[in-house]
Design a protein around this nucleic acid. Structure first.
Lengths: 371, 371
DNA sequence: TTGAAAGCGCTAACAT
DNA sequence: ATGTTAGCGCTTTCAA
């Protein structure tokens, strides 16, 4: 139970030098002393099992080597992956990551930002793509630097140090084009609350692709789930299931033959929902996800056709941007904005519709009988 | 870009009082002053937008209200859930959580422990159930308190403040008994490296259940996957798939009719592996998981029969134990050891074997033709 | 090449 | 009821 930490002074005493010399050793300024001096100090440190007190160092220097990461929901493996990506880069550069799970609550996000600041941290990676960044502005004014995710720099405050975004519009277009190419015409969109920038963009991409193909959009084919309860995004799959029930429990003639879901969790849920109704994926209904959750998307039944987000690379970039700013490497320069291009990964949850459902698609074959 | 933090002295000056008075206000010792004094101080704080510097406070008090959480792999949603459980309780009590992703590397775990200590933290929740705790002993000797997971108190050092464990032996027995009850006799076990206490216990439970039923164990039916590569536990599903290939690519007579997997990720992978071989779950092969990952286990095809771990409750308990110890509420008392009872959740990935495969099971019906 | 001294922002005896 | 003072462990001028 002993807690008597050995301090820098103890080391100094033992090595017969002054505290400042020990400090110099600690900070690698070995050129300022004779070799045998630093050796003596090093030995004293070893003998005493000395490790510097970071808190004291932080107080003195005002620098903390921890960054914050706010994610909307740790329960969604996507954000677990994000956390890992961030942590990896951070660790390489001797930073640590304080994980903040906001459950998409702006009040909590603002509070986290204050806490980070008060704990000496200077940087934050903000995983939510909440419509506005206003709730972080106060912390921003106090010096917090933030790198955003899935958000353009257009509305960025001066505190935004960078941004990483996937082209969500393109991603959705890719997905819908694929479905159109297979012959689908009644294509649904299944989502939770469309209250984030990324979701809005995916919706926009969905609409654009439809419009470009001259397909009449129908509000009945878009299902926007309700806000979250206590379980956050893990409910994605549950909402997907519920949404599928809504969208698919209609007469076959009006039923969509394909569904684009807002992410893979929803896609998995949607597949379950379709099965609940006796519909087979992809024979009776095609489902396409978004994210390409490693392993899951591949291993689920059927393996998911989905739009890949290269999470690792994205978070690598985001973290690098933040650390660069914190260490002044990019001082004064405009914030970077990295846009990555999504890629469609075709697996087995999509196929041609069993019955062409559009006047213009009469020529296509019907592989499967209508159930 | 301004960063001139207002300090306690500024507030004191503005309120026309001494720093100690401000400190007293900050720490709720309002009884030590007249009401109007505290009011003046409070107003000054508000006007200045003052927020206390936690780093300074930490240096002075030696108390940091952050705890560490070491998990083997953030990429497995199970650990995301754990993180959330811990964070929830921590937040309620004004603590924060520093997430440390060890990828099961003991060196990294030891390093994390040192870092926590050097950053003033005093407590750690240790999610790995690595065979030994030795690598944490040094940090323990320096005052770090740790609450362990899936580990009895038997080998616990004096630094262990508590422990939460699910009865893993029972969990595996429950699973195997269920399979035996359905008429299975060739029951396989599918796992990654059995190098953790929890996995060893599940293996033991599997063996016990078999032995109790008088079923001859066979080493050929236990598949222990290789160590991890870069992707950590997310590979669970991949390993599960590979393992299923190994265990099931044998003549039908020797093939297991049921598989217990070490966790749900493996189960999902095993289902995929079975399908790769043209085997249907559960008609041709029953699969049973462990964890009952919320949503996933339910939404996957087929919905997983699995052993439930009540993660939320377990982490709630673990966190409470740790905070109690850190705040001296339980000083001197023996560490608590909470053992929770697993529960079998029967869904659709298990059924009676299509062909009884044991002399003693001749009476059972064969629902399905042999493929 | 090394040391002395001041101080980061806060807290807690100990005065008054 | 309030103020004075002396640090927590470190870094950093500045001086020797």
């Amino acid at each position: 139970m002993a807690c008597a930490r050995t301090s820098l002074r103890d080391v100094a005493r033992r090595a017969g030098v002054s505290p400042s010399t020990v400090s110099n050793v600690l900070n690698g300024r070995l050129d300022r002393m004779r070799a045998d001096t630093s050796e003596r100090v090093l030995r004293a440190m070893r003998e005493l099992g000395y490790t510097p007190n970071q808190v004291a160092r932080q107080l003195r220097t005002g620098q903390v080597s921890t960054i914050g990461l706010i994610v909307p929901s740790v329960a969604n493996p996507f954000w677990g992956l994000v956390a890992r990506g961030v942590e990896q880069v951070a660790l390489e550069r001797d930073y640590h990551v304080l994980l903040c799970n906001s459950e998409r609550d702006p009040a909590r996000e603002a509070q986290f930002a204050e806490i980070l600041l008060n704990s000496g941290m200077r940087g934050l990676i903000f995983g939510s793509s909440s419509l506005s960044l206003d709730h972080l502005a106060k912390a921003g004014a106090r010096g917090l630097r933030v790198v955003t995710f899935d958000r353009s720099l257009a509305d960025a405050g001066p505190f935004v140090a960078g941004s990483v975004e996937i082209d969500n519009v393109l991603g959705a277009r890719l997905a819908v084009s694929h479905l159109l190419g297979l012959g689908h015409r009644r294509i649904g969109l299944l989502s939770g609350p469309i209250r984030t920038i990324s979701r809005r963009k995916r919706l926009a991409g969905y609409r654009q692709a439809l419009a470009d193909a001259g397909v009449q959009p129908s509000a009945d084919l878009v299902w926007e789930g309700p806000g979250l309860t206590t379980y956050g995004d893990a409910e994605g799959a549950e909402l997907g299931r519920i949404g599928a029930h809504h969208l698919l429990s209609v007469p076959a003639r009006a039923r969509p033959t394909a569904l684009l879901t807002i992410n893979d969790m929803y896609a998995i849920g949607a597949c379950a929902g379709a099965r609940d109704l006796g519909l087979r994926v992809p024979q009776d209904i095609s489902v396409i996800g978004f994210d390409d959750l490693p392993v899951f998307a591949e291993v689920v039944t059927p393996p998911l056709t989905t739009v890949r987000q290269p999470v690792r690379e994205m978070m690598r970039t985001a973290t690098a941007q933040l650390l660069a700013r914190l260490e002044g490497e990019t001082d004064g320069s405009a914030p970077e904005h990295a846009v990555v291009t999504p890629k469609l990964v075709i697996r087995s949850s999509t196929s041609r519709p069993s019955m062409p459902n559009d006047d213009r698609a009469g020529a296509r074959g019907a592989d499967q009988p209508d159930p």
